[in-house]
Nucleic acid binder design. Structure first.
Lengths: 247, 247
DNA sequence: TTAAACGCATGATGCAGGTTAGTTTCCGTC
DNA sequence: GACGGAAACTAACCTGCATCATGCGTTTAA
């Protein structure tokens, strides 16, 4: 039950029953954090990794003046600091955004899995590379899209990820983030995110109020965002909007 | 000899003699590409990964109008598409920037290494996560630094990476990139990169002409860039400039 | 029950960086 | 030594987003 969303519908990396059992057996603890709590700090040696069961968490880097840039956002089913297993020490902080429930997996257990089940280790490797692919999409977003495109791209991505986790119907989903969070994701100011949201609303592309996102025009939003979900490696993404669906 | 720079001086992941031998034995082919050649395209299934021996290569995403965003740049010693082993298909293009010599490693060989040498697979995993850590630093760069900071940050990072590969003395290094390349890395226009380079020159921080970078004021440049090399996981980075060296 | 804090909304103003349109310098090659 | 093509560099203009400020409704906590 803890792993039902882990790698769900991920191309070529979905977990077998025995693999899920092995990971569930490796869990040492399940706990809940309040909202906006720091879970791990950059530079601190880690001996466990964290599987997110419920809530939203983030990974971020702060600049000298305290301005924050999120480098990743995580939803239920994400193994959010699995990369701490090979790296041992992280280069960023990890925190909750909402109240969040997590399962803890000791690195010693992952090490054992490496010896016992090479195929499963490869799937965990895959999971960390999926995060890297998302990093790359974020780089494109920050480097080449304007403010409206960035927010639209994030909303398309989030819809796709939550859809694949069974948490979006493809158009509507709960998202307990503030406009300030969006700003820290998209490299903008809160003020400007507010203007962008109004614009998306006025163009009848998307609504976002009281923690609910409603995509009115999936194709239009994807076009505005130049969004193509290929980088999410979802098994069947044909139901998801995309700028162009090649082949 | 092909692996002398691979994971060199990387914290806790340097290769043992037998591990290097295993990887060298896995190389199926060594070849050279001309400058600005596409080596792999997004969406294309791959059965080999590529170890860069000489030259500079890039990974990038293009937008609808052809504007390009580099998501990674690679120097000798980098295993530049090792992530293609678990992922099988890439989400971005791979190309040379200069003439480049590469060694090809079939995925079947990596698979075999997984069964034989779990420790070595973990180091290869580490190598892909190092790329992800660099992605995160690039996200910070694009999201929170101004144009001058971005270019300064890239130059500090490149100095550190080349230093760790034995290709920079810590202040001066060869870098056969154009200002247009810098623009595609930093999410700027070539015109603006040119302005920034002049500014760095006038502030006596850094020179870049005829493919040679000379850092005049390492501490000043690092400060302008808010650069801290921790994310590069270099064994001993104490000789590298940094904004603040904690502890 | 009030006040403080937070999230959202909107307006005015300024500047960093984009855009367009060049010129200049440095190549290699015929 | 003339030609062509890239890369580097410059200048004039314009705009998207940051910055600063203010108000308002709603939640939190004292």
């Amino acid at each position: 039950m803890f792993t039902e969303r882990l790698l769900r519908d991920k191309r070529g990396a979905s977990l077998e029953v025995n693999e899920r059992a092995r990971i569930e057996g490796a869990i040492s603890e399940v706990k809940t954090f309040g909202p906006r709590k720091i879970v791990a700090r950059a530079g601190e040696p880690l001996t466990n990794s964290t599987l997110l069961l419920e809530g939203i968490m983030s990974r971020y880097l702060d600049d000298r003046t305290g301005l924050r840039q999120l480098v990743a956002i995580h939803f239920p089913g994400d193994f959010l600091d699995l990369h701490a297993f090979p790296l041992k020490v992280l280069d960023h902080d990890v925190a909750t955004l909402t109240t969040a429930t997590v399962a803890t997996v000791p690195h010693a257990e992952i090490e054992a899995i490496g010896d016992e089940m090479p195929q499963l280790i490869r799937k965990l490797w895959f999971a960390t590379l999926l995060d890297a692919a998302i990093h790359r999409a974020w780089l494109f977003r920050l480097g080449r899209l304007d403010a409206t495109g960035r927010v639209a791209h994030f909303l398309c991505e989030t819809n796709a990820r939550l859809f694949s986790a069974g948490l979006s119907d493809g158009r509507r989903f709960a998202l307990a983030l503030t406009q300030a969070d969006l700003a820290e994701i998209c490299g903008l100011t809160t003020v400007h995110v507010n203007r962008v949201m109004r614009q998306l609303r006025e163009e009848q592309l998307c609504l976002f109020r009281s923690s609910l996102v409603e995509i009115l025009d999936p194709a239009g939003l994807a076009a505005r965002a130049q969004f193509n979900p290929a980088y999410l490696y979802i098994d069947d993404d044909s139901q998801l909007p995309s700028v162009q669906r090649p082949k």
